[in-house]
Design a binder for these strands. Structure first.
Lengths: 141, 141
DNA sequence: CGAAAATAGTTACCTAGATAACTATATACC
DNA sequence: GGTATATAGTTATCTAGGTAACTATTTTCG
């Protein structure tokens, strides 16, 4: 198995998403749909561009996932003064899904981190953040 | 921005893959295709199942990417005793692509890690590996 | 030996990322 | 006020991940 940090990261996130998708299937959600719902819970109503910036995912991807969540009746549009934008918020059903999913995600994540020292978590978080910054600087060049 | 370790991980790998895809486009490769070529360089000839196990990616995904690399003339089949399996190895052109891509990837990765202490890299690597193990144990339950 | 089980790979069909090119609306500015 | 530019979102099309169900071989074992 390749020992590189980056390789390990990629492998980890693949497995992580796969596992979380399994867990979330009990609520009928996929991992990425959960992220959108999480976003909306935090800031309602929210536009697609705001979600796109927050999650750092391109607009067409957000657009597609939003459409699916709308079809599932989890989110709905809210009238806006700016006719270009599509402001969305969670429906009653969406709020319920949020609560259920939140519990699942929290349980899953805390389970994973158990037995890893706060010190190590902190170092890892800091390292990844500085790698992200580094990537962002690359962006500019 | 959400502060969770896992959220940061996902964001990082997304940006990382995006950026690496850009860099690799000069060689006409995508990040995932590079991983397959890397795999083959390390062990030739190799079967799809071996690649699947090594990269921890499901067979249909490997199957599809292999088909594309074959079409590009970077890899080719090698006769095997077991008629079920498809043993592949790099063509001359594939070897050349490997060399070019290897340079690009190494340059990109070392650039990112520069300025991060060996200590932090080491802790991060160890932490991610134990998170992966944890995920794997979950698999069993 | 012959039938059952395991293994290798493929096909069909989902979700989720990306880019490029488009429409519609809003803003800037001469 | 009218035109140019910027912004919000969508559509089309690509790669890449996943599962389920299939075919074709090989192995196992009674």
């Amino acid at each position: 198995m390749r020992e590189t940090l980056f390789h390990q990261q990629l492998q980890f996130t693949r497995s992580f998403k796969k596992k979380l998708n399994e867990k979330l299937s009990t609520v009928g959600l996929f991992h990425s749909q959960w992220l959108l719902i999480y976003c909306m819970k935090k800031q309602q109503p929210v536009t697609l561009v705001e979600i796109s910036n927050y999650l750092d995912v391109e607009k067409p991807t957000i657009s597609r996932t939003v459409k699916r969540l709308e079809e599932q009746g989890l989110i709905e549009e809210v009238p806006s003064l700016d006719k270009r934008e599509k402001r969305m918020h969670l429906t009653r059903k969406g709020e319920e899904s949020y609560e259920e999913a939140q519990r699942i995600v929290t349980h899953f994540e805390t389970g994973l981190m158990k037995e890893i020292s706060d010190q190590d978590i902190e170092t890892t978080l800091r390292t990844i953040q500085s790698l992200r910054e580094k990537l962002y600087e690359e962006e500019i060049n």
